[in-house]
């Protein structure tokens, strides 16, 4: 199950933020093919976003082939993203958590961590 959160200070339109959160949940295995996405009404009630925003997000995910709307029963995950299994992810997550704790105690803030991560991911190029 995903719980949506909209960062209203972001320049990214809310519907794209919702889409991004579904994609992340797919990559992390929180959502799997066959799972039902929360109903539009549930998202409206719990996250305080407009129903049209949720519909737009779901429609965009549908166009991307990630989910499908089934008449009268909701929106379901159609395909997964990423190839990692929970068995792969769990130990990596644990190591990363330990690393982040180390970075925090060295005084790094979130933005520092992101910057460092981006640098390492891009192979040291900036």
């Amino acid at each position: 199950m995903v719980e949506f959160h909209v960062d209203r200070g972001s320049g990214l339109p809310a519907y794209l933020q919702l889409g991004q959160q579904v994609r992340e949940a797919l990559r992390l295995g929180w959502l799997r093919p066959g799972d039902r996405l929360p109903t539009v009404r549930d998202v409206v009630a719990t996250s305080g976003v407009n129903a049209n925003t949720v519909l737009k997000a779901y429609r965009e995910l549908e166009l991307a082939g990630l989910v499908e709307a089934r008449q009268g029963s909701g929106t379901f995950v159609k395909s997964s993203l990423g190839s990692a299994t929970p068995e792969d992810l769990d130990p990596l997550r644990a190591k990363l958590a330990a690393w982040v704790a180390e970075a925090r105690s060295a005084g790094l803030e979130d933005e520092d961590v992101y910057a460092l991560l981006r640098e390492v991911l891009s192979g040291g190029e900036r």
Partner: peptide, 25 residues
């Protein structure tokens, strides 16, 4: 927003807190 979604009501509201408009309007 739930009232809007459930009843098809149209909502117009004024605010000067622009930061709270995203995803709502």
């Amino acid at each position: 927003l739930t009232e809007v979604a459930d009843r098809g009501m149209t909502l117009v509201y004024s605010t000067h807190v622009v930061a709270e408009v995203g995803g709502v309007a």
